[in-house]
Amino acid sequence: MKYVIYLIVIIILAGIQTGLFPYLKFFGAVPDLLLLFVVGSCLQREAEDAFFVALLCGLFVDLQNGVFVGSYTLSFLLLALLLYLVIGRLVVFELNFKYLVAATVAAVVFTGFLAWLISAAAVHFGWAAAAIDPHIWRSRLPQEIAYSLILCYPLYSLATWTHNSILKLQGKKYRII
């Protein structure tokens, strides 16, 4: 049941990404809502949920953008694993805004670089026809980070709300956003 709820939320986010953000570009950059939702889900400290969200979001990004399948999916999965391990071991107290900002910036840089690396390797080995344009790094990264920081809290809240709704459905205790 919880996976169906996550699937519905991700489909809605993918729809908003495709339908709304081409009209709301910020100096040519658009935020990756699915990446921000992955970050928000990872901060809920539920490994399985975070990995499932990362898998689905990665597949949506790869297939909708026509890049080598695995570029973003593997990047998102590795990001989810790293965030889970780091937050589980280092952050012993309640999460605060600093962690969210740090996780968002790290996620944009980490997944962007890793996805480019995987897609370039896939093109090099003849597995894919088109690689992610490396110029994106030079021209759009600061705007993308700024845009992501604006939207990271709403997406974190959505992830928390989704997580709490699932817990509520399962009859468990849930956290306040």
């Binding site: 495709t18 040519g28 690689a131 992610i132």
Partner: peptide, 8 residues
């Protein structure tokens, strides 16, 4: 699909 993130 129209490459919503402008990657490629």
């Amino acid at each position: 699909a129209q490459n919503p993130l402008g990657l490629t």
